[in-house]
């Protein structure tokens, strides 16, 4: 067995997700990402089951593992009981742990996700908040969202009195003790270290690419760049 395959198999999602692939392609047939990208989840499963270190390393450094939207449409349809998405989740975890995610354009985007969703969780206890969905960055949200964004307190108070305040209700402020517990969970379970590693690897890569580091400019670059090779 290859060492990368062994590392992958430490993840319970691999144990659950990989039995034996017969290359039927049904997963690719139902996949919304395959609909759009030059992407074939069948090949990922097939490559991983070879247990070949070189091939798996190539995969861990590629754009290929980052196209999946984790919709799980492939899971109930596989006639062999594989879950391509679970295999992909394991590959993505390992790619980030080993710092291989910075080798691909789609992989480098993980820093942007950490700095948006990850930061939201750290700061507010939620993945998103009205004030964090800026209409400038989200033109597709349309004028009604812009109106909500600009009048957030008035709009949310229409549906309850507790907007950004402690106590129950939509978009409430989470109390300090609960936030402290959440932060402890992130620390104890290794999420903090995981975040730090994303920052560290991205910093190195950014400098290598000619940026001053993983600064705002680098963030904007990875958040918006599409080199046109993915479809």
């Amino acid at each position: 067995m290859g060492k990368y395959f062994d590392m992958l198999m430490e993840d319970v999602r691999m144990k659950e997700g990989l039995t034996a692939c017969m290359n039927c392609g049904i997963c690719t047939g139902v996949c919304p990402s395959a609909e759009f990208y030059n992407y074939d989840p069948r090949q990922i499963v097939d490559t991983v089951q070879t247990q070949d270190d070189r091939a798996i390393e190539e995969l861990l450094k590629s754009d290929t593992i980052w196209y999946c939207g984790e919709c799980m449409s492939c899971r109930p349809r596989c006639p062999r009981g594989n879950t391509p998405a679970y295999i992909i989740q394991s590959l993505r975890s390992l790619s980030q742990r080993l710092g291989f995610f910075v080798y691909s354009e789609k992989g480098r985007q993980q820093l942007a996700l950490k700095r948006t969703i990850g930061q939201n969780i750290l700061n507010t206890g939620y993945c998103l908040m009205p004030k964090l969905i800026d209409p400038e960055l989200h033109p597709e949200q349309g004028p009604v969202w812009k109106w909500v964004y600009e009048h957030d307190r008035d709009v949310f108070e229409r549906f309850g009195d507790n907007y950004r305040q402690e106590g129950p209700g939509a978009v409430r402020k989470i109390d300090d003790q609960s936030m402290a517990e959440l932060h402890n969970i992130l620390k104890v379970t290794g999420c903090d270290d995981f975040f730090d590693n994303l920052e560290k690897c991205s910093e190195q890569k950014a400098i290598e690419m000619g940026f001053n580091g993983a600064d705002e400019e680098y963030f904007r670059y990875i958040y918006t760049t599409d080199n046109g090779s993915h479809q």
């Binding site: 993980q110 996700l113 969780i121 939620y126 993945c127 998103l128 106590g167 959440l182 999420c191």
Partner: peptide
């Protein structure tokens, strides 16, 4: 009022580890 996000969007964006979300 005390519960938080399940952090599911972070998990399915692969920045929140499995052990973390399981504990949340």
């Amino acid at each position: 009022a005390r519960h938080t996000s399940c952090t599911g969007i972070g998990y399915h964006s692969d920045i929140v580890p499995l052990d973390t979300i399981m504990t949340v």
